[in-house]
Simulated assay, not measured.
Amino acid sequence: MGAAAWAYLARVVEGPHRELNALLGEVGPEEAAERIRARRGLPPGLARATEARHAEDRAAADLESAAATGFRLVTPEDPEWPVAAVQAFARGGARAPAPHALWVRGAPLAGLLGEAVGVVGTRAASGYGLRLAAEISAGLAGAGVTVLSGGALGVDAQAHRAALAAGGRTVVIAAAGPGVTYPPAHHRLFREVAESGAVVTEYPPGTRPARHRFLTRNRLIAGLGGALVLVEAGWRSGARNTVHWAGRLGRPVGAVPGPVGAAGATGCHAAIREGEATLVTGARDVLGLLRPVGAVHEDAQLELDWAPDPVQALPREELRIYDATPPRGPGARVREIAAEAGVPPGLTAQLLTALETKALVRREGARWRRCVGAATGRGGGAGKKISRD
């Protein structure tokens, strides 16, 4: 009876409903279903929301149809119900009610959503947007984070595919019911996602996608993940709606900046400018939003990518001598360099020798000068053995 009651409730109400959630907490699914059928003891809002479908009991057929396409109905009574993730909806108030049941194809939800991030963006993604979506999603998957997205064209599909290619897990939050793949071209992608991750929807079997269902679906992407990243979005992109949901639910949001003036970057730039999102440029930045402060060294990759050049790495005294050594012309004697740097001549001679071993200065007779291009490791004898006169 329990599964049948939940299946009835999953169809009788279009999407989530705050008053239904409250009634379920008071009397449970069987009594809630019976009250809706009998039209008794219902709060006004729930009575209106169920008026059109209360006599339409397709529970048995829906459970059978879902099973035929690999879906199961997951409810708060099941061990895999993602309790911690769903708790976020309590912060959203009446405007962001929690799901009361989910149709799932794939792995158990609780394990998938223990650490997850929503990755969203425009369907009309540019090459830049697709590249960043792939890099971020692969990086998150490599760090053991589940990638959530909506299964749409553009950024969504790229996020799912990159997570799979990295050997990670990803979840499609769909705006259509079991048995309906949208977009139809992603039938194979959804099947591959379900092999290690899951396809999830609030809508009963056979439900077709519609604009309002996409908007409602966006709240699930925002709420079921521990953070959200907006990769590329126009000014009126539906992905920005997901950002609004995340803010309402108290989830941290990151946005990737794009080229100034690019239409596909305006949504990201607006989210950053208006304080809805933090600027992020890669998976490590996103992990910094998701994990506790101090758990992620967000600048570590930058330190590798932009390591100090040989001159920037010099100790202070050696840098003074390097700066005082002429880069061109016949060079300068030790005493001249010492006077320019304000360092005793004896120490200057020692430091010049140290710089010579690093291929940063060259001695020509009694004079010294810098090696051209030494700061970047190009030309001027950088990296070469320098003979002494």
Rank of each mutant, 00 (worst) to 15 (best):
A313K: 01
A277N: 12
D309H: 14
E276D: 15
I321E: 02
E318S: 09
A300C: 03
E298R: 15
P310V: 13
W306I: 05
E317I: 01
L314V: 06
E303G: 12
D285R: 03
R291F: 07
L287F: 11
R316K: 06
A300P: 00
V286D: 03
L290Q: 12
V293A: 14
L319H: 09
P308Y: 04
V280G: 03
L290C: 12
G288M: 07
P292G: 11
R316A: 14
E317F: 00
A295Q: 08
A324P: 02
P310H: 12
E317S: 12
V293K: 04
A307K: 12
A277S: 13
H297Y: 02
E318P: 00
A313W: 01
L290P: 11
A300G: 07
D285W: 06
L302S: 13
V280D: 02
A295Y: 00
I321M: 02
R291T: 06
I321P: 00
L287I: 09
L289P: 03
V280P: 01
V286T: 11
V286I: 11
V293S: 10
I321V: 15
Y322K: 02
P315C: 02
V286N: 05
L279I: 12
V296N: 07
G288T: 07
V293Y: 09
A277F: 14
R284H: 06
V280N: 03
G294V: 08
Y322W: 15
G294F: 06
R316V: 12
G282R: 07
A300Y: 07
E317R: 10
I321Q: 01
R316I: 01
L289V: 11
L279D: 06
Q312H: 09
Q312L: 12
T278W: 13
L302F: 10
V296W: 08
A324D: 05
L314Y: 01
V296E: 12
D309E: 11
E298F: 04
E276P: 01
L289Q: 04
D299A: 14
A295V: 03
E303C: 08
W306E: 07
W306V: 13
V280M: 08
A307T: 12
L304N: 03
L304F: 10
A283H: 13
L302V: 13
D299I: 02
L290S: 10
L319R: 15
L304R: 15
L279C: 13
L287H: 11
R316L: 13
Q301S: 07
E318N: 00
R320P: 00
D323S: 04
D299W: 12
D309Y: 02
E298D: 02
V311E: 06
T281H: 06
A324V: 04
L289N: 04
A313Y: 01
E298T: 15
D299S: 13
I321F: 00
